[in-house]
């Protein structure tokens, strides 16, 4: 019998990472559904939890269609899966509300940047999901922007907590797109599954988050070329610690 399974390790790896990040974001958000600073924020956290888990739930079944997924069926279900393709920063519970906001504003926005680049994907299942995710994530970005401004403008320990939380998520989130010659993202770009290379994705992402941070006086090591409109990190990212398969940072050896 001829196998109809898709043989594409690059797409399988990125879909695995998207699913794991969404799943863990949802679980971490859920913890704050009854611990947010206000009832309104708690309900918003619960709504975002549902969205993230919903996104994960639409992504995991796609893995079954891949030859790479057939090797170990236990890795296709989040209940039995033990592979970790989510950011290392999601390995533990958020340290506080500022961590929730940093993950919401930085990581969730980075994932949305990828989905936005896949809205005309040559891989139809990703294209359909990407459009829905981008639509639903608008509210998440508004929530992140609003709370970043609120915590930053509070000053003192509240602002300091936010700065520390952003620092915990910054490097790994920027790394998630991969170095510009990342063969995985390059393969997706070459196959028409996304419309941008890693550096362009990173630039689009920074174009969203940097104006918000700049407005509240939070500067990141990033440059902006007015002529080309491109945003780039000005400090080197920790690629030596970054795992290209799982798209996450490892410990310093």
């Amino acid at each position: 019998m001829v196998s109809t399974a898709i043989d594409n390790a690059a797409l399988f790896a990125v879909l695995s990472s998207l699913a794991d990040n969404k799943q863990l974001l949802g679980r971490r958000y859920a913890h704050w559904s009854n611990g947010a600073p206000s009832l309104e924020a708690a309900v918003a956290a619960a709504a975002m939890t549902q969205d993230e888990l919903g996104h994960a739930r639409t992504l995991y079944p796609l893995l079954e269609q891949f030859e790479q997924g057939q090797a170990d069926l236990t890795q296709l279900d989040p209940m039995t899966r033990d592979a970790r393709y989510a950011l290392a920063a999601l390995d533990h519970e958020f340290l506080g509300w500022a961590d929730f906001i940093a993950a919401n504003f930085l990581l969730d926005t980075a994932l949305t940047t990828f989905f936005a680049a896949a809205q005309d994907s040559s891989y139809e299942p990703l294209r359909a999901r990407a459009r829905k995710v981008v639509q639903e994530e608008r509210l998440h970005l508004t929530h992140g922007e609003g709370w970043v401004a609120r915590l930053a403008n509070a000053g003192g320990a509240v602002r300091a907590n936010l700065v520390e939380a952003l620092g915990r998520w910054w490097d790994e989130t920027l790394c998630w797109f991969g170095p510009d010659d990342d063969p995985t993202m390059r393969r997706l770009y070459d196959d028409g599954m996304i419309d941008a290379t890693p550096d362009t994705l990173r630039s689009r992402y920074l174009a969203v988050v940097m104006p918000v941070l700049s407005r509240v006086g939070l500067d990141e090591p990033v440059s902006h070329d007015e002529a080309s409109g491109e945003w780039r990190p000005t400090e080197s990212l920790p690629w030596a610690r970054w795992d290209a398969t799982t798209r996450r940072l490892g410990v310093i050896s």
Binding site: A152, V158, G167, E172, G217
Partner: peptide, 18 residues
């Protein structure tokens, strides 16, 4: 992990109690 964010003074004049 490296702390990358550089924080200028908060736009609000004084720190608000948490």
């Amino acid at each position: 992990m490296k702390r990358a964010t550089k924080s200028k003074a908060a736009p609000a004049a004084a720190a608000t109690p948490r």
